[in-house]
Amino acid sequence: MFKRLMMVALLVIAPLSAATAADQTNPYKLMDEAAQKTFDRLKNEQPQIRANPDYLRTIVDQELLPYVQVKYAGALVLGQYYKSATPAQREAYFAAFREYLKQAYGQALAMYHGQTYQIAPEQPLGDKTIVPIRVTIIDPNGRPPVRLDFQWRKNSQTGNWQAYDMIAEGVSMITTKQNEWGTLLRTKGIDGLTAQLKSISQQKITLEEKK
């Protein structure tokens, strides 16, 4: 169930391209415009997507990853294993993690069937560096609404905000991946996880038929 919630949630996290980005210092504006741009692209490019579902990787690479804190999220997933990894191991892992996100997020976007969304009203940021933004996803086919909290983090150097995690039903996506990959990290280390991520990233994206 959580895996499905995570995939549905990713439908609204794909941010804007650099040329049309919203105010990078306001995570609420980023979330709002990102959702609108993403849904528009999914709707307008269905012919290309249906002809070649792996085209979704391109959308992810162009529109999402430049505005997601990939390395920060990847380091959180590694936890204690990050500090013990060599620079070469980290570089290989982050490259594999990025390719994994292209496949995983692309597969999530393949679930698009006309969903709509509501974003919580903007709250004062103050001096906060981590801000959760509640998004409610509404399914046109009558499924119950899904309420999610996207975690946005302020870059201490640039002042810009980027998304790095999502919490559904009190469970963090980062925590879920830590639990899912924990045994592999304990037995085969970061190299074993890197190899698995490379394998997963090679899987073809498949479209979910409308139910």
Rank of each mutant, 00 (worst) to 15 (best):
T194P: 02
Y93P: 06
A51E: 06
Q123R: 09
S199Y: 14
A95W: 12
P53H: 00
P27R: 00
T25G: 05
V131L: 11
K71V: 04
Q151N: 06
N52S: 10
R143I: 12
D139P: 08
I13C: 02
E180D: 04
Y117E: 05
G106Q: 15
G159V: 02
K128V: 03
W161A: 15
L109T: 14
L207G: 10
P124Q: 03
L30G: 03
V60Y: 12
F97R: 06
A120F: 03
L197G: 12
A168P: 09
R134F: 04
Y55C: 12
V146E: 05
A35P: 09
L184C: 13
D23V: 10
A73F: 15
A75W: 02
P87L: 09
Y112E: 14
A168S: 03
M1L: 01
P121C: 13
I200D: 04
S17R: 02
L185K: 10
Y82C: 05
T38I: 12
A108G: 07
I13H: 01
Q157G: 06
K102Y: 01
K3C: 00
K177D: 05
R90E: 11
A9Q: 01
P15V: 13
L64M: 12
M31Y: 03
L11W: 01
F94R: 07
I49P: 04
A120C: 09
P53K: 00
V70K: 07
Q162T: 13
Q62Y: 01
V131P: 09
L64G: 10
E169L: 09
Y55R: 06
W181I: 02
S172W: 05
T158R: 08
S172M: 15
F97S: 08
D149W: 09
L64E: 10
T86K: 04
T86I: 09
K198W: 04
P66K: 01
P124V: 05
A168G: 14
E33Y: 03
V8F: 04
A14T: 04
N141W: 13
A163T: 12
T38H: 13
E45A: 13
M6D: 00
I130H: 10
N44T: 01
I190S: 05
Q203S: 15
D40G: 06
L65E: 06
Y55W: 15
I190Q: 05
T38C: 09
S84V: 04
G192R: 06
Q69W: 02
A51Y: 13
Y55K: 06
Q162H: 12
I138M: 06
D61G: 08
V70L: 09
L30Q: 05
D191A: 08
A108E: 11
Y100A: 11
A73I: 00
G126S: 14
R50G: 02
F39D: 04
V68P: 09
P27E: 02
K102F: 02
T25I: 14
L76R: 06
E209P: 12
Q157S: 07
T175L: 13
I200T: 08
Q203M: 01
G74R: 07
L56N: 02
Y82F: 07
T176V: 12
Q89E: 15
I167K: 00
Y117H: 04
E99P: 08
I200Q: 14
Q202H: 15
P145Y: 12
A19C: 00
R147P: 09
D165R: 10
V77D: 05
P66S: 07
L193H: 04
R4G: 06
T25C: 03
Q178S: 15
L65Y: 13
S199V: 03
S17E: 03
Q36W: 14
G182V: 09
G192Y: 13
D40K: 01
L5M: 11
A18W: 00
A85P: 03
P144T: 08
P15C: 14
Y93Q: 14
K29N: 05
R134H: 14
E99I: 10
F150N: 01
I205C: 12
E169P: 10
W181D: 12
W181R: 09
L197T: 13
R147S: 05
A104L: 12
P124I: 13
A9S: 05
A95Q: 05
A35T: 05
Q103N: 00
A21F: 04
A34G: 10
A14P: 07
G159D: 03
K154R: 10
V12H: 10
L125Q: 07
I200A: 04
A163C: 09
T38R: 04
I167A: 10
P121M: 13
M111R: 06
R153S: 13
P27V: 10
M166C: 15
A96G: 03
K204E: 08
Q107F: 07
D191H: 03
L10N: 00
G189R: 06
